[in-house]
Amino acid sequence: MRVDILGITVDKYSMQETVEQIRKAVEDRVRIRVVTANPEMIYASGRDERLKVLINSADIVTADGIGVVWAARQLGTPVQERVTGIDLVQALFPVADRRNWRIFLLGGKPGIAHRAGIQIALKYPGIAWDESHGYFSTEEEAYVLEKIRCFQPDILLVGLGAPRQEYWIVEHPGLATVSLGVGGSLDALAGHVVRAPERVQTFQLEWLYRLLKEPWRWKRQSVLPRFVIKILWQRFNTF
């Protein structure tokens, strides 16, 4: 089942259930597209019908962030837990390691995806991986696409930033069994960006930690109060 949040339908899967859905897709060779929908993306879809259709047409739409979890609860149809891009990717790695999956990493500045791949391989040697940075030109894109096709990945992790990565995945279907937009997750996997301590994550304050570490993010996070107002308005008109 999905919950309607400002016109975006978000799956109610837990992290474990999401991983299981992806595992089945890989094992059965069923191509699927996964979108991790955060409040900023959901809010933006209210002014961009194409983005709304793109998200809602995905095979899996996860609740990326505590803001989405809060919204679902306010609307009377709670989701089980947040399923963020970075957490989902890290939950997939043990499965990928046991089953020798092939994972392609696309995104980040030159060197980031490569470092991320090395870190993954050190911990999960059963995973075959390849990579490309995300700063390719229009002329270089054909080479990147051919590289991905030749690698034949089970999982394609695209970190081009939302919603560019979502549009890119739709514009280039069939590159992998499972295609997943992961935002800045490659930076975290490479160790280029340090995640909040586990205690901060437990208290669901990772957004505040990132804002303090990266003050420039305030422009993006300024959407959150408007997101809250829209959710409360949807709740008022629903009940």
Score class of each variant (00 low, 15 high):
Q80M: 13
M41D: 08
E17S: 11
V61E: 03
R226S: 06
R164Y: 14
P215E: 00
R50Q: 14
A190M: 09
E27P: 00
Q21G: 06
L205H: 08
E171A: 15
P225D: 06
E49S: 13
V19D: 02
M1W: 04
Q74P: 00
D11Y: 06
R115D: 13
D4I: 09
Y43E: 11
W129C: 09
K12D: 07
G107C: 08
K147Y: 10
T177L: 07
V178G: 03
A58P: 04
S57G: 02
D48H: 08
I229C: 07
R149Q: 14
E139D: 14
G184S: 13
P110L: 11
G7H: 04
K147N: 12
V178A: 07
D130L: 05
I118N: 12
Q165G: 07
V34T: 09
W129H: 15
D28G: 00
M41K: 12
G67C: 08
R99A: 09
R102Y: 01
A58K: 11
E49A: 15
S132I: 10
G85E: 00
P153R: 10
E140P: 04
R73E: 14
V69K: 01
V61C: 02
E40W: 10
E20K: 10
L88K: 05
Q165I: 12
D48I: 07
S185V: 03
S222T: 09
P78G: 09
Q165A: 12
I86L: 07
C150P: 00
R50M: 08
N38A: 03
Q221M: 13
V200I: 14
I120L: 13
D130G: 15
Y124I: 14
Y209Q: 07
R102G: 02
E198R: 13
P163H: 11
L105K: 07
D130K: 12
L122I: 15
L232G: 00
L6T: 06
L92A: 05
D59S: 12
Y124K: 10
A116L: 11
D64A: 02
A58W: 06
W70C: 01
T18R: 05
D64H: 05
R29C: 09
D11K: 02
S137L: 12
N38Q: 03
D28C: 03
G65A: 03
F93D: 06
V83S: 01
V170Q: 15
G191N: 04
D154E: 07
T36N: 04
A91N: 08
A176L: 10
P215M: 00
K147D: 10
Q80R: 15
Q119W: 12
Y209H: 14
A72C: 07
A196M: 06
A96S: 12
A113K: 04
I231L: 08
E20L: 10
D28E: 15
H133S: 05
V19W: 05
T18L: 10
A25N: 06
V53L: 11
L92D: 04
L75P: 07
